[in-house]
């Protein structure tokens, strides 16, 4: 028997997930526009694998299959994962990544709401550590590559592997890779930026994808699905850290604008660091969580072994989230702590 309240808001986990997926559409479309239809294929493949793994996990756990399979959470995971890994990789790359994301990172910890780490980022981290080679072959912007695989060719590439098309025909080193390898090699920054893979703000095309993620994120914000704390703190911290590093060593570090408009920073700020399950939940906790995540991202990008650090920084902060939450409890009504209580 359930007591009051006897009325509930028309909201559900499924609705929340649907809204997140809707907000991901602009960024995904931008990606397809600038980099070819490969992303659509990887999205479909990832979605299928995710559903299969989720169903398998639920069956093994003996959970209420129907409600959980349709809650949409695994599709969000799959979508975020698909946007984080290069399209047109062999199908088993996606399978391995999602196997870890769904089975290990999510269901071994107890399923929906129980995972300490963001599942999509676990999948990404497993892949970049295990198969770094596949993870660096991103399709180049369509006007820069020799060949843009069509939808049918994309399916072929994913399921049948390299056929007639050479991998060099459609992939290019990503801007972050370029920065990392060439700066390390001592190439002057101006020469690097002359590479057509760089656009006005950041990577060609990628800056638009980032912009669309920003748009989707703002939609989520306007719909009150997320609060301002995480994106603002994350982006501010990224900008500040990048700014300071650039000021300290302009020859070796890229500026704040470049970093802000990389797709992974925008995706991380609005869609990944905002994951409530693995992130912080108190307002001040969110600021600390996202602020530190942004800082670590740029530190990894600038000094780490991997070209990108957003996934790792968020995973690192996931560990600290419960601790941060415990120490950032808001002041409760009527309790003194800096606040005005009584006369």
């Amino acid at each position: 028997m359930i007591g009051s309240p006897f009325v509930l808001e028309k909201n559900s986990v499924r609705l929340t997930m649907v809204k997140v997926m809707l907000a991901l559409i602009p960024g995904t479309l931008a990606h397809a526009w600038f980099f070819g239809p490969g992303i659509v294929v990887s999205l479909l493949v990832c979605g299928a694998f995710a559903i299969v793994f989720e169903g398998l996990a639920l069956l093994m756990r003996g959970c209420c299959f129907k409600n959980f399979i349709s809650d949409g959470s695994v599709l969000v995971t799959a979508w975020l994962f698909a946007l984080s890994v290069p399209p047109l990789a062999p199908w088993w790359i996606y399978a391995v990544g999602l196997l870890f994301a769904v089975l290990v990172a999510k269901h071994l910890y107890g399923g929906l709401g129980q995972n300490p780490f963001n599942p999509a980022m676990i999948g990404y981290a497993v892949l970049i550590i295990s198969f770094p080679n596949y993870m660096t072959h991103w399709p180049g912007p369509i006007h820069l590559v020799n060949h843009v695989p069509s939808l049918a060719e994309s399916f072929d590439l994913v399921f049948a592997g390299q056929g007639s098309i050479s991998i060099d025909a459609y992939t290019m080193a990503s801007p972050l890779d370029t920065v990392k390898t060439l700066l390390r090699a001592g190439v002057p920054k101006a020469d690097i930026l002359a590479n057509p893979v760089f656009g006005r703000l950041s990577g060609t095309g990628l800056e638009w994808v980032a912009g669309m993620y920003l748009l989707g994120g703002l939609l989520l914000l306007a719909n009150r699905q997320i609060t301002w704390h995480v994106p603002v703190a994350f982006l501010a911290s990224v900008a500040a850290t990048a700014g300071i590093l650039q000021a300290v060593d302009p020859a070796y570090n890229m500026g704040p604008v470049f970093h802000l408009f990389t797709a992974s920073v925008m995706l991380g700020a609005f869609f990944i660091a905002t994951d409530p399950v693995s992130g912080c939940s108190t307002p001040r906790g969110k600021l600390i969580f996202a602020g530190l995540a942004g800082f670590i991202s740029i530190i990894i990008r600038s000094y780490g072994g991997y070209p990108d650090g957003v996934a790792f920084s968020i995973l690192i902060m996931n560990v600290a989230a419960p601790f941060i939450d415990a120490y950032t409890q808001p002041r409760v009504y009527g309790h003194a702590r800096g606040g005005k209580v009584g006369r």
């Binding site: 409600n67 929906l112 409530p276």
Partner: peptide, 11 residues
């Protein structure tokens, strides 16, 4: 009352 799902700490 609809069936309950686990808490996702959505806040």
């Amino acid at each position: 009352h609809p069936t309950a799902m686990p808490c996702t700490r959505c806040g």
